[in-house]
Computed example of a mutant assay.
Amino acid sequence: MRIEQWLPKGLGRLRDAGDRRIVERWARWQPLRRQHRQPEHRPTSPGQACGIPQEIRAVVRLLEWLPEQGSSLAACTQNHINVYLATGPAGRLRIRPFLHRTSRRQHTRALTAPSYTSSLAVGIVAADTRWYLVHRLVHEPDLAVRDRAAGLLLLLFARSPSWICALTRDDVLDDGATLSLCLGTHPVEIPQPFDGMLREPVHHPVSKAQRLESGPSRWLLPGARAGRPMEPVSLSRRLKALGIRPRPTRNASLMDLPAGLPVVVFSRLLGFTQATAANWTIDSGGDDGRYAAHRIRRATANTEGTAIPVPPQHDG
């Protein structure tokens, strides 16, 4: 709904009314329709909510760029598209779905662009940078405790901002001596001094809306609205202010964690499916990944709709 309300403003930068109609029809028929058809049990993720406006903005920027080159959407050639993509960031590749539609509808000539995919090779921070950030969060007490706790969850356990914001007080198991956190199917014991950082938001929650709530918030990181958690976008902004870029640092964690763990342990520890755990293990160079991936593919091909069997463990 917020995207649909934003759409007229996003398209208002286009001076040509015909271009605005073409972009609006594409936006409503493809990216927005794709979200409308998403199953109810799979709510829109923060990444999807941000990705659709970015896709539309990429198209708007193309249509703003063409008149500067003495061209228009109808007169655009593949050479224009190639120059546009070669002289800007990778996000410009998001115009591909729009070009395919305008080509089919004959609004333009037959135009195309490479698929937009994130590159793991460039979307990852160095290991020493990651451990520097961990050291900083552990040893700088002047930083806000909730920011330190959220940053360590991302750096040490590869938790995304949306996952961290969804944590509740019930996910923290504390018997006074040992603190555990429900990351996957089995609670994970949190070592010192990280356990103290997680106890702080449990016992002393910080929220602008706290005075409007009748009791303690159920959320580990309460948001500015009563009864709601912190928004993932807000948490990402706070982490970036500390020098922690969520996606590259999470990728670094996902490359490091499975390298020393069997796929089954990695899957159960962090709550990933075995297929996802196997893929990350392969990318990290682990030995267990290819075997687990083979077992998963074979089980899926032989028994459609049944649970994936757990690969057996081997000594050593």
Rank of each mutant, 00 (worst) to 15 (best):
1 M>V: 05
3 I>V: 13
7 L>H: 05
8 P>C: 05
12 G>E: 03
13 R>F: 01
14 L>R: 00
17 A>D: 02
20 R>C: 00
21 R>M: 03
21 R>A: 13
22 I>C: 06
23 V>S: 01
28 R>P: 03
29 W>H: 14
33 R>W: 07
34 R>E: 14
38 Q>A: 09
43 P>I: 06
44 T>W: 02
47 G>K: 12
47 G>Q: 14
48 Q>G: 14
48 Q>Y: 11
56 I>S: 08
63 L>W: 01
63 L>A: 03
66 L>Q: 02
67 P>D: 01
69 Q>D: 01
71 S>F: 00
72 S>L: 01
77 T>R: 07
78 Q>R: 05
81 I>K: 01
83 V>A: 08
85 L>M: 08
86 A>C: 11
90 A>C: 06
91 G>Q: 00
91 G>K: 01
92 R>E: 03
92 R>V: 00
93 L>C: 07
99 L>I: 01
99 L>G: 02
101 R>P: 00
102 T>D: 02
104 R>E: 03
112 T>A: 11
112 T>N: 12
112 T>V: 04
116 Y>A: 12
116 Y>F: 14
117 T>Q: 14
124 I>C: 15
124 I>H: 13
125 V>S: 14
127 A>P: 03
127 A>H: 13
133 L>D: 06
136 R>D: 10
137 L>F: 04
143 L>S: 06
145 V>L: 03
147 D>L: 08
151 G>I: 04
152 L>I: 09
155 L>F: 08
161 P>R: 05
162 S>F: 04
163 W>D: 13
163 W>C: 10
172 V>A: 11
175 D>L: 09
177 A>V: 10
179 L>Q: 05
185 T>C: 09
185 T>P: 06
189 E>H: 12
194 F>M: 15
195 D>A: 15
196 G>Y: 03
198 L>H: 11
199 R>G: 03
202 V>N: 10
202 V>K: 07
206 V>I: 12
206 V>K: 13
206 V>A: 12
210 Q>G: 09
218 R>P: 11
221 L>F: 15
225 R>S: 09
226 A>Q: 11
228 R>W: 08
229 P>E: 13
230 M>S: 10
231 E>C: 03
231 E>G: 04
232 P>V: 07
233 V>P: 07
236 S>G: 15
240 K>N: 13
241 A>K: 15
241 A>P: 01
243 G>C: 08
245 R>V: 11
247 R>T: 05
249 T>A: 15
249 T>D: 08
257 L>F: 09
259 A>Y: 12
261 L>K: 11
262 P>A: 07
264 V>D: 08
268 R>G: 11
270 L>H: 07
270 L>F: 04
271 G>T: 00
277 A>I: 03
278 A>Y: 05
278 A>G: 08
279 N>C: 05
282 I>W: 02
287 D>T: 10
291 Y>C: 08
291 Y>D: 12
295 R>W: 02
296 I>V: 14
300 T>C: 06
300 T>E: 14
305 G>P: 05
306 T>A: 14
308 I>V: 15
310 V>A: 10
311 P>N: 13
311 P>G: 12
